[in-house]
């Protein structure tokens, strides 16, 4: 049993969208649906400017708000801490969408079913890296077991003192260096 999580270094991310597209291909999503969203924040005044790019996807929260509110239990958490969707149970009520603090859930307008990042659970089960991690061109993403202090991801989190996006909203499993 592991507790999977991710580290994202926004000081390295160049906003190239490779993670978004590979995720869409991996998960065979319609083009207008993406599990990863990009938030940009520009600070400072010309020519002293910084532009931060924050890629946001499901944060695989502990005690996930989406799971709590989901009336059908379509949303559930695996023993490895991955928050998943049972698409056959989802009624499309969108309660989880409004409850998710990270805007991580999208609705497929063909089926009405809600979906979101699945931490590439099928690839991970085969011992591979999630698609967005393996393709990240600037190595801004690291994936692994948060419970293992020797994992790359744990070490990176400690080294960069990475934090969840909104630690005040409860524990999530993507840590950002900002």
């Amino acid at each position: 049993m592991a507790r999977y999580g991710m580290f994202i270094d926004t000081k390295k991310c160049v906003g190239c969208y490779a993670c978004r597209v590979t995720c869409q291909m991996q998960n065979e999503l319609p083009v207008e649906i993406s599990y990863i969203h990009f938030h940009e924040q520009e600070t400072g005044i010309f020519p002293n400017v910084r532009n931060e790019i924050i890629p946001v996807q499901c944060q695989h929260c502990e005690d996930a708000p989406c799971e709590t509110v989901c009336p059908t239990k379509a949303t559930y958490t695996t023993e490895d801490g991955i928050v998943l969707m049972d698409e056959d149970k989802c009624i499309g009520c969108k309660y989880c969408v409004v409850a998710c603090p990270y805007g991580a859930r999208t609705q497929d307008h063909h089926t009405g079913v809600i979906n979101k990042c699945r931490f590439c659970a099928d690839l991970v089960a085969e011992g591979k890296q999630p698609s967005c991690v393996s393709t990240c061109i600037s190595d801004a993403r690291i994936f692994g077991d948060l419970d293992d202090p020797n994992s790359e991801v744990s070490k990176a989190i400690v080294k960069h003192n990475a934090q969840p996006l909104r630690p005040d909203l409860g524990k999530s499993k993507i840590y950002y260096a900002r």
Binding site: I91, G92, Q107, G112
Partner: peptide, 8 residues
């Protein structure tokens, strides 16, 4: 009606 997936 609003719960599209259930409606289907």
């Amino acid at each position: 009606v609003d719960a599209e997936a259930g409606l289907k």
